[in-house]
């Protein structure tokens, strides 16, 4: 019975580590989806010089996961344009959908909202490229750190479970 209890405690600690890792993995996936969405938005603006509502609508249909959610949320907010500025609508959409991103990443996305739609096309494209490059760098960093973090988190969580088992038993 005690052995079973100890085993359960170790397994509990281990699963806690797995949950933490899953969050990190989903953040990496979210960053990739946002990058993809920004690339689609870039293409819509650069190739078609589409008005933003049209560019957002077209890119939303082809984007994945969090990128798609962000654009759909923004599309739903467009009717409030005038009452709220585009930057405010964008920030609202980011805060509602990009929950898996870290605050610095959300801040960078929010900054993008101040350039989109407001300036000439070249300035908007520059802002999109800069934001995408920032997120790409963050994703690369997270991907490179992931194997080491996986070992660390699994080791730590299993050790914490074992320690708790020893302490209790």
């Amino acid at each position: 019975m005690r052995a079973l209890g100890a085993l359960l405690l170790v397994a509990g600690g281990f699963s806690f580590g797995i949950c933490a890792l899953r969050e990190k993995r989903s953040r990496i996936a979210a960053l990739r989806q946002i990058e993809g969405m920004l690339a689609l938005l870039c293409a819509e603006l650069e190739l078609h010089e589409a008005p933003l509502p049209e560019a957002v609508s077209n890119a939303a249909r082809r984007a994945d996961g969090m990128g798609r959610a962000l654009l759909y949320e923004l599309e739903a907010q467009f009717s409030r344009l005038g009452e709220a500025s585009f930057a405010q609508l964008w920030t609202t959409a980011v805060s509602r959908t990009c929950v898996q991103l870290l605050p610095q990443e959300r801040d960078e996305l929010n900054r993008l909202g101040h350039s989109l739609g407001r300036y000439e096309l070249s300035a908007q494209l520059l802002a999109l490229h800069a934001c995408r490059a920032f997120l790409e760098e963050r994703r690369n960093g997270a991907e490179q750190a992931f194997p080491a973090e996986r070992r660390l988190w699994l080791g730590l969580s299993a050790a914490a479970g074992a320690f708790l088992a020893i302490l209790l038993l």
Partner: peptide
Amino acid sequence: LQRILEKATGASMHAAA
């Protein structure tokens, strides 16, 4: 004034350039 222009252009100043 900026807000009015933003609404009038659908937040797309580039399309109205």
